[in-house]
Design a protein around this nucleic acid. Structure first.
Length: 221
DNA sequence: AGCACA
C-alpha cells in the first residue's frame, strides 16, 4: 500500500524533465527514466526506484528541485497522479503549515511552532562566504532547502584599504517561512570544514527583499 | 561590520 503510494509519487521526477527524453532516445526501461537533463549533478542523490522507494519520499522531503524551473508539477498536470487527497502537494507557493507538508519535515520538522520574526522576508542576506565563492557553489548550499529560488552574489571590498574583498549573498525563497528555515539551519555554517573559523555563515533577513528571480535580465546566452 | 538587483 505504502509502496504503491510512493511508486506513484515518483513520476513527479519523470515528468518534471520532459525534454530530457527526446524522441530519439530509446527507452529500454519499463517506464521512461529521466536522464536528469535539468540537474545532472544531482544524479547521485536520487535513488533508483527499484527498492528504496520510501527513502525517495524522505529525500523529496528535503529536496525540491522542481520549484525552481517553474515547471508544472505532474500532480497538477495529471489528476491521476495527484496524491494526498487531490491537492497538488508540490505547490510551495501555497503557505501550508509544516505539519501538513511532508517535504518540510526534512529541515523544518522540529520547528513547526517557530514563529517568524517580524522582519522576516523572502530574501536572506548572507555574509561570510569566501571571496572566491562562485554562484554555483553558493547555490549548492541553499538549493536543498524547500522554497529556494535563486542566489545572487555581490562582491564588495572592505571599508578600510588593504582589506580583502568579501562576498555578499542574497538568497531568494518563495516564502518567508522557508527562508527562515534555511536561515536557522545555516546560521554559523562552516564553509571550510578544515578551517572552521574561516567561513562561518551569518544570515539575516534582507532589509529590502527584492526578488528579481524570474524574468530578470540575465546573461542567458 | 558590511545589504544588491530592478
Amino acid at each position: 500500500m505504502a509502496d504503491a503510494y510512493w511508486r506513484y509519487a515518483d513520476p513527479r521526477q519523470q515528468v518534471a524533465v520532459p525534454q530530457a527524453a527526446p524522441a530519439a532516445t530509446p527507452t529500454p526501461f519499463k517506464r521512461p527514466r529521466p536522464e536528469f537533463g535539468g540537474a545532472p549533478e544531482l544524479v547521485g542523490y536520487y535513488p533508483r526506484d527499484e527498492d528504496n522507494t520510501k527513502h525517495a519520499g524522505a529525500i523529496y522531503a528535503s529536496y525540491d528541485p522542481y520549484s525552481q524551473n517553474g515547471m508544472p508539477y505532474a500532480a497538477a498536470a495529471d489528476p491521476a497522479r495527484t496524491i494526498s487527497g487531490g491537492r497538488p502537494v508540490d505547490d510551495p507557493r501555497i503557505p501550508v503549515h509544516p505539519s501538513m507538508d511532508s517535504r518540510v519535515m526534512g529541515y523544518g520538522g522540529g520547528r513547526m511552532d517557530a514563529p517568524l520574526p517580524p522582519d522576516a522576508s523572502n530574501t536572506l542576506f548572507v555574509e561570510g562566504l569566501p571571496g572566491n565563492c562562485t554562484r554555483r557553489e553558493a547555490s549548492h548550499i541553499f538549493r536543498p532547502f524547500v522554497g529556494f529560488r535563486e542566489v545572487r552574489l555581490v562582491n564588495k571590498d572592505s571599508k578600510h584599504p588593504g582589506g580583502d574583498t568579501f562576498v555578499l549573498c542574497f538568497v531568494d525563497f518563495i516564502a518567508p517561512s522557508q527562508a527562515a528555515v534555511a536561515l536557522d539551519a545555516l546560521q554559523g555554517y562552516s564553509i571550510d570544514e578544515h578551517d572552521p573559523e574561516a567561513g562561518r555563515l551569518k544570515l539575516q533577513f534582507a532589509r529590502f527583499p527584492g526578488p528579481r528571480s524570474s524574468g530578470g535580465p540575465r546573461h542567458r546566452r
